[in-house]
């Protein structure tokens, strides 16, 4: 039976292919304007399959990983690419507003754990700035998840700071006992590290040990003042244990504080200086 149908099908396909193609045309193609559709079909002819890997597990027919590579200069630069030309007007205005030079960065800075030049730099700047706002701050902490990019080896501009710290969080000051601070540091130790300034610690089996605040070992009953994003104070990123503590709300956004600090620093013509000082070690 099925062979007969197959034969009829082949005949019909050969004879009336165009009309079949139209009748099975999917919903989307009917919806999309023709001009856009044509443009793309031509621009994607150089797509190649780079590698194919098939899983040998039980779901082998279903799970696989593939990479397509698209080699086109216009795509990599992402400018002047016709379907999204309208983005250029947004991009240009935004670039104009954020292109003010702040400071020269001699090298690429990338976030990594448990500490990195980037995380140390940001935390150090926040500790400095928080001490301009409140008279006593012992430690500044920044959740690594809030740091979304790195700095290029280039003149840093406001746009770079906004890439690195895109979230509109403000800097608050919270007062914690040494025991609570230890709990907060354990939380970050379990996640692999944190951007911190004003303290040193060692991560052992996901716990923070040998904690020094300033140069003194942590005292569990003493109270410490910690500058950190309102996102964490409000219980974000698993910090629900911080909710309801004594807190001074800050007026400044972290992004603005960092940009202002870099601008002051760079106005003397000095380049950005960063350091890895082993403030967070992993044992």
């Amino acid at each position: 039976m099925s062979r007969v149908f197959l034969l009829v099908w082949i005949l019909l396909t050969v004879m009336v292919k165009p009309s079949r193609a139209v009748s099975w045309d999917n919903f989307r193609e009917k919806q999309r304007p023709n001009s856009i559709l044509n443009l793309h079909i031509y621009s994607t002819t150089d797509t190649t399959v780079l590698k194919a890997r098939r899983s040998k597990r039980s779901q082998a027919h279903f799970n696989s990983y593939r990479s397509y590579q698209i080699n086109s200069d216009s795509i990599l630069k992402d400018r002047g690419y016709s379907p999204f030309l309208w983005v250029d007007s947004f991009r240009n205005l935004q670039n104009l507003m954020t292109s003010k030079p702040l400071i020269w960065s001699p090298k690429i800075l990338i976030k990594s754990m448990p500490e990195s030049e980037l995380t140390n730099l940001l935390a150090d700047m926040l500790l400095f700035e928080s001490r301009q706002i409140w008279d006593s701050v012992d430690v500044a902490l920044l959740n690594p998840g809030g740091i979304r990019a790195g700095f290029p080896a280039d003149t840093l501009r406001l746009m770079h700071v906004m890439e690195v710290l895109p979230f509109p969080n403000r800097l608050d000051r919270i007062t914690l006992t040494g025991g609570d601070l230890k709990q907060l540091l354990d939380h970050w130790a379990a996640k692999g590290g944190v951007a911190a300034s004003g303290l040193r610690m060692t991560i052992k089996e996901g716990k923070a040990i040998d904690i020094l605040v300033g140069n003194e070992p942590i005292q569990l009953n003493q109270s410490y003042r910690i500058a950190l994003p309102d996102y964490l104070v409000d219980g974000g990123d698993g910090c629900s244990f911080l909710m309801g503590r004594q807190v001074q709300r800050g007026a400044f956004r972290i992004t603005d504080l960092v940009a202002a600090h870099l601008e002051k620093w760079g106005s003397s013509g000095a380049p950005l200086k960063t350091q890895m000082d082993g403030r967070i070690r992993v044992q």
Binding site: T44, T47, I70, I75, L76, D78, P83, A149, P152, E163
Partner: peptide
């Protein structure tokens, strides 16, 4: 952007191309 471990990856134009 440059300065990220994923420099050059992503973007709506490349996504559009792949989708098409």
């Amino acid at each position: 952007p440059e300065g990220s471990s994923m420099a050059g990856m992503g973007g709506i134009s490349a996504r559009m191309d792949l989708l098409n």
